[in-house]
Simulated scan of single mutants.
Amino acid sequence: MKPKKDIKEMSDRFTIIINGLKSYGKTYPNEEVVRNVLHSLPTSWEAKVTAIEEAKNLETFSLDVLIDSLLTHEMRLNNGSE
């Protein structure tokens, strides 16, 4: 995730990359996609990443549910800083 970017922008960028790779016939298992998104988050998100990795089965955890969870967490972080 780039500095000063939010989860929505990161998700949109990641989706464009994944769809581009799919158009060339390259696909990735769900677990790998979810792990790549989690590992792309800044270190300030480490607690959330650890919680998700420990609580969820990443083989079945969908990218959409992950993004929703991250967006919710981001909203909570932003509300706390205001």
Score class of each variant (00 low, 15 high):
8 K>N: 13
61 F>E: 04
8 K>P: 02
38 L>W: 01
2 K>H: 08
17 I>H: 02
28 Y>D: 02
79 N>L: 12
11 S>L: 03
58 L>S: 06
7 I>C: 09
8 K>I: 13
45 W>K: 09
82 E>D: 12
77 L>W: 00
7 I>G: 07
65 V>Y: 00
7 I>M: 04
34 V>R: 05
6 D>Y: 02
22 K>S: 08
32 E>F: 02
35 R>C: 10
69 S>T: 15
8 K>D: 12
11 S>H: 03
66 L>S: 05
31 E>K: 13
13 R>K: 11
10 M>N: 07
56 K>I: 04
44 S>M: 05
5 K>T: 15
10 M>V: 07
50 T>L: 13
53 E>I: 07
53 E>R: 13
80 G>D: 04
15 T>W: 00
36 N>V: 01
6 D>G: 14
70 L>V: 02
69 S>W: 01
20 G>D: 08
64 D>N: 09
57 N>V: 10
50 T>K: 15
52 I>Y: 01
60 T>W: 00
47 A>T: 14
10 M>F: 10
72 T>C: 05
4 K>F: 08
2 K>V: 11
80 G>H: 02
36 N>M: 10
2 K>E: 15
71 L>Q: 08
15 T>E: 13
75 M>S: 12
36 N>A: 13
49 V>N: 04
50 T>P: 01
23 S>V: 01
65 V>T: 15
68 D>F: 01
60 T>E: 12
47 A>M: 09
74 E>Q: 15
27 T>E: 14
4 K>I: 09
16 I>F: 04
35 R>G: 00
14 F>M: 11
6 D>H: 07
14 F>G: 06
50 T>C: 06
31 E>T: 05
47 A>S: 15
35 R>H: 04
36 N>Q: 09
75 M>E: 14
31 E>M: 04
11 S>C: 06
45 W>G: 11
81 S>N: 07
82 E>P: 02
40 S>E: 08
28 Y>K: 06
19 N>E: 13
48 K>V: 15
18 I>L: 12
81 S>T: 11
67 I>V: 13
58 L>D: 05
24 Y>V: 11
57 N>D: 15
73 H>F: 07
37 V>L: 12
60 T>R: 07
65 V>P: 00
2 K>W: 00
1 M>W: 01
26 K>V: 15
27 T>L: 03
56 K>P: 05
26 K>F: 05
8 K>Y: 04
43 T>K: 14
50 T>V: 15
44 S>R: 08
28 Y>P: 05
61 F>D: 04
40 S>Q: 07
23 S>E: 14
4 K>W: 03
43 T>V: 12
46 E>S: 15
42 P>D: 07
5 K>I: 05
45 W>S: 10
37 V>Q: 04
41 L>S: 06
77 L>E: 15
35 R>L: 13
79 N>G: 01
7 I>V: 15
28 Y>S: 10
5 K>Q: 15
39 H>G: 14
36 N>H: 04
66 L>K: 03
15 T>R: 12
47 A>G: 05
30 N>L: 08
17 I>D: 08
5 K>R: 09
37 V>H: 01
11 S>N: 12
60 T>G: 03
57 N>Q: 09
55 A>K: 12
31 E>V: 11
62 S>L: 04
17 I>V: 14
5 K>P: 00
81 S>E: 11
9 E>A: 14
48 K>H: 06
60 T>K: 10
51 A>C: 09
76 R>C: 04
59 E>D: 14
2 K>N: 12
57 N>P: 03
